[in-house]
Amino acid sequence: MGPSGCGKTTLLRVLGGLTAPSGGAVVADGRAVWSEGRADRQALTQLAMVFQEANLLPWFSVVDNIALPLRLRGVPRAERRAEAARLCELVGIAGFEDHRPHALSVGMRHRAALARALVESPRVLLLDEPFAALDAITRETMNLELERIWLARPCTAVLVTHAISEAVFLADRVVSLSARPARVLAITDVPFLRPRPLDLQHEQDFQGLVRGVRSYLTAAQGG
């Protein structure tokens, strides 16, 4: 988390091999993502990214969008469509497999984008404010869903968000960043067991953590 414009997206793009860093190293699973200004292909196959806009290809049906990473790897059509259909089930958009993205609600498009990111069972999942465009209620459901889906297909996930309670609710660790250029202000461990019920948000411990993170961020905005 961090104030708007501090470089969260930039950082995630560096992690995901989209923007070359001017210095430093990104190591995923013991492999450097960047070497000499070029993204390492092998390291990138372990990564999947969910963008702020769902970024589905409008000319493909939902299954074909989800199956796209498999198609690029040469998985036969029937097989990849079957796997994509399983993921539709998992993310809760079963029945819409053959619809085109524009026929889906915004929330459903994000579910499809998540399914596409998960289809290759990545080791690391990068999510850039995936639910920022959603209304509060849908967003809350999506958070629960995200945890459920993540428990079904566990992997390391890096989630960028600017909603503090969302961060605390979903994360094992919340990293607070300063204003641009971003520095790590604090790393807050979140000890709650999973699956976490929505009611957790009303508990003392939870609200204590939220207050803690907020104080770092307000300090960051002030200075």
């Binding site: 989209l18 292909r41 196959t45 990564l47 990214m49 963008f51 970024n55 290809l57 796209l68 690029l72």
Partner: peptide, 9 residues
């Protein structure tokens, strides 16, 4: 969509 193409290599 080009970002997508890049992450999917």
């Amino acid at each position: 969509n080009l970002d997508l193409a890049a992450t999917l290599q």
